[in-house]
């Protein structure tokens, strides 16, 4: 029995999530996905994140012989990791630009933009991230839904399978979460 399956089983039995171990194993895949997930102005190609996550899952499947029911848990964890990865990457890039680190990576086009003001896309991500901390105190499951849908891009059905609820519930949760976040982001 693969390590991940074991860890996931432990999680299912109510014990604290064996998050660390899974991270070790999945980290490379998730990192790659997170990279691909971020979209840039001059991108011409958009990647299909759902496909990427599936790829990571399949990779695991081959290595660890995960059961179908574990996929759900895996996705939930992956989403949580993804959120943090994306946030990390965004922060890194922001810091770089501010600190003038690797100038060679900034093209002439963006210089103007940078000098103007903060970058909208990055800000939204960071602020959503912070707001989720608040939302977690209201309802954890709403946070999961945001992670899986906003950060990873999974479908309602996939989210429903992962959380063990109906797609209708996921839909409702999604709306609730959006309501909260919109209000939170919009307020002073």
């Amino acid at each position: 029995m693969g390590d991940v399956t074991e860890l996931l089983q432990t999680a299912r039995d109510g014990e604290p999530l064996a998050v660390g171990r899974i991270f070790e194993m999945l980290y490379p895949d998730l990192r790659r996905i997170a990279h691909g997930r971020l979209r840039y102005r001059d991108d011409r190609l958009l990647m299909d994140t759902g496909a990427l996550v599936n790829e990571a899952y399949l990779h695991l499947l081959k290595a660890e012989r995960l059961q179908a029911s574990d996929r759900g848990h895996f996705l939930a964890y992956a989403a949580r990791v993804m959120r943090n990865l994306v946030v990390d990457m965004v922060r890194e890039q922001q810091a770089e630009r501010r600190g003038g680190g690797l100038q060679s990576f900034v093209t002439l086009d963006t210089v103007a933009l940078n000098s103007a003001s903060a970058s909208g896309g990055e800000d939204e991500i960071l602020r959503v991230h912070e707001a989720l901390e608040e939302l977690a105190r209201v309802d954890e499951r709403l946070v999961r839904v945001i992670e899986m849908r906003y950060f990873v891009g999974l479908t309602n059905q996939e989210i429903a399978d992962s959380l063990g609820v109906t797609p209708r519930t996921v839909e409702r949760d999604w709306e609730k979460a959006r309501t909260f976040l919109y209000a939170t982001l919009g307020r002073g």
Binding site: H35, R37, L38, R39, Y40, R41, D42, D43, V86, V90, Q93, E96, R97, L102, S104, F105, V106, T107, D109, T110, L113, N114, S119, G120, G121, E122, E124, I125, V128, I146, R149, Y150, F151, G153, R178, L181, Y182
Partner: peptide
């Protein structure tokens, strides 16, 4: 709102072409 991840304002960093 939050339908997708927003587009980053900069260019994709070089290394990430990997």
């Amino acid at each position: 709102f939050l339908g997708d991840l927003p587009v980053m304002s900069g260019s994709r960093p070089h290394g990430e072409t990997h």
